[in-house]
């Protein structure tokens, strides 16, 4: 028991935030419930972002009702590769990444094959709400598959790596790259075994990495070091992230951005309840940074001020 109290004290001293604290002090206070649908429904997010001029993966089509499922084949006939997603999916469940075709089958990101009826069944499941929050009926969206920037090629097992940036009141406070692994079946989801690597807010270089709750230094499938990789166009990424505050009105937000080889950074999705593993990936607690933003919120109005503040205050403390 004494050990546990000591651990709790040390965590508190390091400003590490727990789920209860995130929910009670940030989500419930800075995120209005009425704005949740904007981020919970990826179709709405996409619409919102496109209107604001932020790049998003192109939408190929939406299946809204069971009756439309048979049209899937014709809808996809011109596409070699695409992604099928539940619009209100949670934690990356139900996302299917098709990388190509092989005869009558679709080739999946994790190397498996899927035939047309199986794909249609998957879409039916999405529609009936199997993967959605609270099990409400859902829509299936089919969109452009990102050709990720080769910068992460060496430290990615299939799938699409993305950059998660936590934005508080429009200020990017912490960031990480999420790298798919074999265990995560090519998904960039930390819950499913992907690697998270902290990114220095001021430079955009990767730092330590974490897999599950463990600190790692190499990608488990490729064996390449994860550290000191420069995320290209970092300033653009930060700006996209910061603008999502005005976009959604949500004070505490996780912004997921992918880097396309040809099209540059695009918003993949927004998350009103972003996970806390980012703290392990950065080996730093969120709380001091959030408090710093709160203390200065009055002078952090314009986007330039917010970005400058972030780069100045939230860079890596350890210059090594």
């Amino acid at each position: 028991m004494k050990g546990l109290i000591a651990v709790a004290r040390a965590l508190r001293a390091n400003g590490v935030m727990g789920i209860n604290e995130r929910n009670a002090e940030f989500n419930l206070i800075h995120n209005e419930r009425s704005r949740f649908p904007l981020v919970d429904d990826k179709l709405l997010t996409k619409e919102l972002a496109s209107k604001a001029g932020v790049a998003v993966p192109q939408l190929y089509g939406v299946i809204e009702i069971q009756h439309e499922v048979p049209e899937l084949a014709s809808l996809l006939s011109a596409r070699q590769d695409f992604v099928v997603k539940p619009a209100r999916g949670s934690q990356g469940d139900g996302i299917l990444v098709v990388t190509g075709r092989s005869g009558n089958h679709y080739r999946l990101a994790d190397g498996g094959l899927m035939d047309q009826p199986a794909l249609e069944f998957h879409v039916s499941n999405i529609l009936s709400g199997v993967f959605s929050l609270g099990g409400q009926t859902d829509r299936a969206m089919i969109e452009y598959r990102v050709n990720f920037d080769p910068v992460f090629e060496k430290i990615t097992f299939r799938g699409v790596p993305d950059v998660r940036i936590i934005v508080f009141l429009g200020v990017p406070v912490m960031a990480m790259v999420r790298l798919p692994t074999r265990a995560a079946k090519g998904k960039a989801n930390l819950h499913q075994g992907a690697i998270g690597s902290g990114v220095d807010i001021s430079t955009g270089r990767t730092m330590t990495a974490v897999r599950g709750d463990q600190v790692v230094s190499e990608h488990p499938d490729t064996g390449n070091p994860v550290r000191d990789v420069q995320v290209p166009r970092w300033d653009t990424l930060l700006e996209i992230a910061a603008r999502s505050f005005e976009l959604t009105g949500l004070g505490y937000l996780g912004v997921d951005i992918v880097l396309d080889r040809d099209l540059g950074p695009m918003i993949l999705e927004l998350n009103a309840r972003p996970g806390l593993n980012i703290q392990i990936a950065n080996r730093a607690g969120l709380r001091p940074r959030l408090d710093a933003v709160l203390a200065n919120r009055d002078r952090l109005r314009a986007i330039d001020e917010r970005l400058e503040f972030a780069k100045e205050r939230f860079g890596a403390q350890d210059p090594s």
Partner: peptide, 17 residues
Amino acid sequence: RYSGYRLTELRRFRELA
């Protein structure tokens, strides 16, 4: 309104302690 750590989080974040 309890905003302290969950016991399982002490284990989860032990690297940061």
